[in-house]
Each structure stands twice: as C-alpha cells, then as structure tokens.
C-alpha cells in the first residue's frame, strides 16, 4: 500500500517539475521536441532508480560525514553509464541532448531523492520512489516538449500536424521554454485547486 503511494506521489502530487520545481535546467534546455523530452526523462529515470537502489543498499556502510560525496560518486557513475550507452546505441539522441546528459549529475532531483528518501528507506521502496519520480519527470518533460514542438514547428513526436511555416518559432527557441512552462504550471495549479 505504501509502495503504491511512493510510486504515484511522484507522478502528480509531488511532480518534480510542476510541484517541486527541481531539475529546471534540463527541463527547459532539452524540450525543443517531445522526443528529446522523453529521451531525457527516461535517461534521468534510469539514473534515479539505479542510484536510489544502490544508495539504499549501501547506506549503512557509509559514514555520515562523507555521505554526500559518496552519493555523488555513485550518481556520477550511473550518469557515465547512460552517457556511454546512449553514445553507442542512440547516437542521434545523444547528439541532440548533448551537454545535458553529463549534467544529470547536478540535477537536484537525483541527489535530492538520494538524500531525502533512499538514505532512509529500504531498497524496494527506494526503487519505486525513484521510478515514480523519474516517470513524473519524464511526463513533465514530454508534455512540455510536445507543447513547444506543436506550437513552434507544427509537429508532435515528429508527426506533422500543420505546416511548419505557420509555427511560432519563438516556442522552439529559448524564450518559449520559459513561457510554456510558466503557463503549464498555471494550468496545473488551477486543476489542483479545483
């Protein structure tokens, strides 16, 4: 029962992007298309789940004072694993996400969950917490990417809905990221209260 709650809280109620406002850099930086958003979300999910599992498994063996450095090393290792794997098997996605893959290391969600949840709970609930948070993050990024892609270039997941030349370019560019996220949070807050 608790695990169900651990899973679902990350999706909406404690959604890392819309509710907690964590991990803003990749959220704004890579969401020029739904596909990029989803790719980034899943990469982060993998790191979150793996880091949560390992950290909750070794938490008793790590002295309190060096907790954070140890967590960072574990997280950075998984990030590098993602980086290398993506470069080998998904080179075009790797090219479009670019710098933001290594920057998963400093994504506040990952270290935040490690510190706030995994270092206090058992392996299974930590894994579920990571999965829920990761999927919530993916959901937010995909949604943001889809809206920007649709408004900016008339496509969703690369499928042309209307002619690209009628798209509002600004939504694919930097300012569009801020604007769309601002209005998405507004809409979500509205539904939350209702």
């Amino acid at each position: 029962m608790d695990n169900v709650k651990n899973f679902t809280k990350g999706l909406i109620k404690e959604n890392p992007v819309f509710a907690l406002l964590l991990g803003m850099c990749p959220t704004l930086g890579v969401t020029t298309s739904a596909e990029n958003g989803l790719g980034m979300g899943l990469a982060t999910t993998f790191v979150l789940v793996m880091a949560n599992i390992v950290i909750s498994a070794v938490k008793n063996g790590i002295p309190d004072k060096v907790r954070i450095p140890a967590f960072i090393i574990i997280i950075a290792s998984f990030v590098t694993v993602v980086e290398l794997t993506m470069q080998a098997y998904l080179p075009s996605l790797f090219a479009s996400l670019g710098l933001f893959i290594p920057l998963i290391v400093v994504n506040c969600i990952v270290l935040g969950r490690a510190e706030a949840f995994a270092s206090k709970n058992n392996v299974i609930s930590s894994a579920i917490d990571g999965l829920g948070m990761g999927l919530g993050f993916s959901l937010a990024l995909t949604l943001l990417g889809a809206v920007r892609e649709f408004l900016g270039s008339g496509k969703v997941f690369g499928l042309q809905i209307y002619d690209t030349n009628y798209g509002m370019l600004v939504f694919v560019l930097a300012p569009g990221a801020f604007l769309v996220l601002g209005y998405l949070i507004l809409v979500i807050n509205r539904f939350k209260k209702a």
């Binding site: 063996g61 790590i62 060096v66």
Partner: peptide
Amino acid sequence: MESTFKNMVLALLIVTL
C-alpha cells in the same frame, strides 16, 4: 556507521574503486 577518519577514507575509497 561511525564517522571516524579511518572509516570515512575507507568508505570513499571503496565507493570510488
């Protein structure tokens, strides 16, 4: 685990390795 100097160095070393 206690945060003695030996423990800290050891833990970090193992994690890094």
